[in-house]
């Protein structure tokens, strides 16, 4: 979707247009869910954060400034701040009990088992990273945001973002030594 189209939809939302809202939810919801589920791992909480993010779009669309950020960056920013609020409320990271249900695999049974094991190890390793390293890695590696967008969301310089990313990847390499290069 072109930025102009997206901006027009946001303008329509400020006038209470549900159809425009539905289009933007359809456009961005899966990406945001991917983000929050990796950030929080508690899937119910992650889905609540996504809902709240879109509720903010509905109620505060007039605050979106298309000149300063892309809509996806703005939405990621809201979701990120809600995730951080959530971290601060619960002092520890909670893992979903139905962890296996969060994984997708199209592999044959034997390799599926190995894939699940590997995926689970990566999930735990990512979740064990310090908050800012985890955010930086998820925004850049998994969400595919540019370095500038990710730096803006984290409110750091691009150099600081690179440092966070490098430390995160170094740590993950150590934690996943068993699987690395397999």
């Amino acid at each position: 979707m072109q930025r102009d189209e997206e901006n027009e939809l946001v303008r329509r939302i400020t006038r209470g247009d549900r159809a425009a809202f539905a289009v933007l939810v359809g456009q961005h919801q899966r990406a945001l869910t991917n983000y929050t589920r990796r950030m929080l791992t508690d899937t119910d909480l992650a889905d609540d954060v996504v809902q709240e993010t879109f509720l903010r779009l509905w109620t505060q669309a007039a605050r979106y400034d298309a000149g300063t950020a892309r809509l996806t960056t703005w939405l990621h920013n809201i979701a990120h701040n809600l995730c951080i609020d959530s971290f601060r409320r619960s002092s520890r990271i909670s893992f979903s009990d139905d962890a296996d249900s969060t994984l997708e695999s199209d592999d044959a049974p034997d390799s599926a088992e190995h894939s699940r094991e590997r995926s689970d190890a990566v999930r735990q390793a990512v979740a064990s990273l310090p908050e800012r390293q985890r955010s930086a890695l998820i925004l850049c590696h998994y969400q595919g945001l540019s370095n500038r967008d990710a730096a803006e969301i984290l409110d750091v310089s691009v150099d600081a973002l690179e440092s966070l990313l490098a430390r995160a990847r170094r740590r993950l390499k150590q934690l996943l030594e068993e699987f690395h290069g397999a």
């Binding site: 539905a22 939810v25 359809g26 919801q29 899966r30 990406a31 869910t33 991917n34 589920r37 990796r38 889905d47 996504v50 809902q51 249900s101 969060t102 994984l103 997708e104 695999s105 894939s115 590997r118 995926s119 990566v122 999930r123 990512v126 890695l137 590696h141 998994y142 993950l172 996943l176 699987f179 690395h180 397999a182």
Partner: peptide, 13 residues
């Protein structure tokens, strides 16, 4: 290795 960690994103629309 990082790409092997995928999450299921349900349709919440």
């Amino acid at each position: 290795l990082l790409d092997s960690y995928r999450v299921k994103a349900p349709d919440l629309t």
